[in-house]
Amino acid sequence: MTTATRDADAYPVSDKVTAEWTSASARPARTELLPLSAVRFTPDLALDSTAPAGEPMALPFTVQGAAAGGGLRRSPYR
């Protein structure tokens, strides 16, 4: 498990993220780094991190890490 925190005064909407990965595979003979990726969403929000209700909006994103440049042409989400 890993946790990242940042200054709550500067980031009042979200100042802590915790992530944990599990696997059903056998323990490797030696420690190995996993090729993890991150998806960063960058919607156009107001300063209080809100968007107008009832309106469709674009949700731009970028992929970083192992999956970056992997040929994803568009998000499967609408």
Rank of each mutant, 00 (worst) to 15 (best):
M1A: 08
M1T: 07
T3F: 02
A4L: 15
T5F: 04
T5R: 00
D7E: 12
D7Y: 07
D7Q: 10
A8Q: 02
D9N: 14
Y11G: 00
P12A: 02
P12S: 07
V13D: 10
S14G: 01
V17P: 04
T18M: 07
T18Y: 02
A19G: 12
A19S: 15
A19V: 15
A19C: 13
E20V: 15
W21K: 01
W21R: 01
T22V: 03
T22D: 03
S23L: 06
A24C: 04
P28F: 01
A29H: 08
A29Y: 05
R30Q: 03
L33Y: 01
L33S: 15
L34D: 00
A38K: 08
V39T: 12
V39G: 07
R40V: 15
R40Q: 14
F41I: 15
F41T: 07
F41L: 15
P43S: 06
D44C: 14
D44Q: 13
L45P: 12
L47E: 10
D48Q: 12
D48R: 10
S49P: 05
T50M: 04
P52G: 00
P52S: 00
G54E: 02
E55S: 09
E55L: 14
P56T: 08
P56N: 03
M57C: 05
L59M: 04
P60E: 11
Q64K: 09
Q64Y: 11
Q64W: 13
G65M: 12
A66C: 00
A67G: 09
G69W: 14
G69K: 09
G69F: 14
G69M: 10
G71E: 08
L72P: 12
L72Q: 13
R74T: 10
P76A: 11
P76F: 02
Y77E: 13
Y77V: 15
